[in-house]
Design a protein around this nucleic acid. Structure first.
Length: 363
DNA sequence: CGACGTGTAAC
DNA sequence: CCTTTTACACGTCG
């Protein structure tokens, strides 16, 4: 059966929430940042509102660059408050849940809704539902969102990119080719910088080029699986279901005050991170079997060392294993120093229904 | 096949 | 002078 899928994206979510709770900053460019604590301005932009985007300030940009771009302007820099945004997000996701047969939260500010039945297969009805959701979110939480509607998740996502913020774009099955064909391959969701460059090298500039490129040649370059994926993207095909997935991994990374290769020093930081992870794991009711040490050096190269051990529910109980991984790493990679360190746990098992684990798992 | 490490991508 | 978190695919090794 044909499906109708919706992707809802909360507009400049962090910045919008800051504007809501701080009326005095409304009407100004707002930049919400992750400060690393290394120097005054080290860190990166998490989200900027649309006024800040007009100044060229975007997510991912170093804070120092953003400050340059903002020089002389009346702009507001704020640190992220993930807990607060998460609480609001949970409430909004609950609203979404009211309208969907199936629901999939993909991040703190994005979710897919399968409304095939609810809409009775009608795109007009799906659009009406979208308007109702937008209105409720605005009424109840004061933020705007952008909706894309299409025959699958990929097309819903592509539709949503068309018109932001506060947008609503519908792409019917018949309109898919016209919608995609002229787009540069790099604009296709799931095709990043590296892949786009490789495609360029083959003379493939647009989705149309990609759709008509010989499959065997694609397979030669990218392997069977990725070639298939690329072709499907170009054609707007995506059969993946809307379904909430269980978390596979939790991690926590931090930037060291200065580059270090001193195991004791680094372990101090790692044990703090473990304590943080423990809290999150308790909330979710999970245990793990694999622990991973994450390191990032001065050139921002990331490396990992992991070990699978007896099942544990407290990452702090695996700190000896982490230390061993770290010592081994420092030995065989004789580094100038580590800039950032982190720890991840994976190979998770979920214990019985922990009571009310937040919206994610109510589905 | 499971474990491990890297690369790519997105938010 | 460069953040954080997660997922997934793929190659390799034993």
């Amino acid at each position: 059966m044909a499906r109708i899928i919706m992707l809802i994206d909360l507009d400049a979510f962090y910045a919008s929430l800051e504007e809501l709770r701080r009326p005095e900053i409304r009407g100004k460019p707002v930049i919400v940042c992750v400060y690393s604590g290394r120097t005054e301005d080290s860190g990166a932009v998490a989200t900027s509102n649309y006024l800040a985007r007009e100044l060229g300030i975007r997510a991912g940009m170093p804070i120092a660059f953003a400050k340059m771009a903002a020089k002389g302007k009346d702009v507001v820099f704020l640190p992220v408050d993930k807990e607060y945004y998460g609480a609001v997000s949970d409430r909004i996701m609950d609203i979404f849940g009211d309208y969907a047969e199936r629901f999939q939260q993909v991040s703190i500010d994005e979710a897919y809704l399968d409304v095939s039945e609810r809409s009775g297969g009608s795109y007009e009805e799906a659009e009406r539902i979208a308007r109702e959701i937008k209105e409720r979110v605005r009424e109840e939480e004061g933020v705007s969102c952008t909706v894309g509607i299409g025959p699958n998740k990929f097309m819903a996502k592509m539709a949503s990119k068309k018109n932001k913020p506060d947008g609503l774009t519908v792409v019917r099955p018949d309109d898919v080719p016209a919608f995609l064909n002229g787009l540069p391959v790099g604009k296709l969701h799931g095709i990043g910088e590296k892949t786009a460059e490789e495609l360029m090298g083959l003379g493939i500039k647009t989705a149309g080029d990609l759709a008509s490129f010989s499959l065997p040649s694609l397979e030669e370059r990218f392997g069977k699986n990725k070639a298939k994926l690329l072709r499907e993207r170009a054609l707007g095909i995506d059969d993946s279901p809307v379904e909430q997935k269980e978390r596979q991994q939790l991690s926590r990374i931090a930037t060291l005050k200065e580059d270090s290769s001193d195991a004791d020093e680094i372990m101090k930081r790692l044990s703090e991170l473990c304590a943080d992870l423990r809290k999150r794991m308790e909330k979710l009711g999970v245990s793990f079997r694999t622990v991973t040490l994450i390191t990032i050096d001065a050139h921002l190269k990331m490396q990992t060392r992991s070990e699978t051990i007896q099942e544990k529910d407290d990452p702090c109980a695996a700190l000896d294993n982490v230390r061993a991984l770290l010592v081994g790493f420092l030995k065989d990679e004789n580094h100038k120093g580590i800039r950032r360190v982190g720890i991840a746990v994976s190979n998770l098992s979920y214990k019985e229904k922990k009571k009310e684990q937040k919206t994610l798992f109510d589905y």
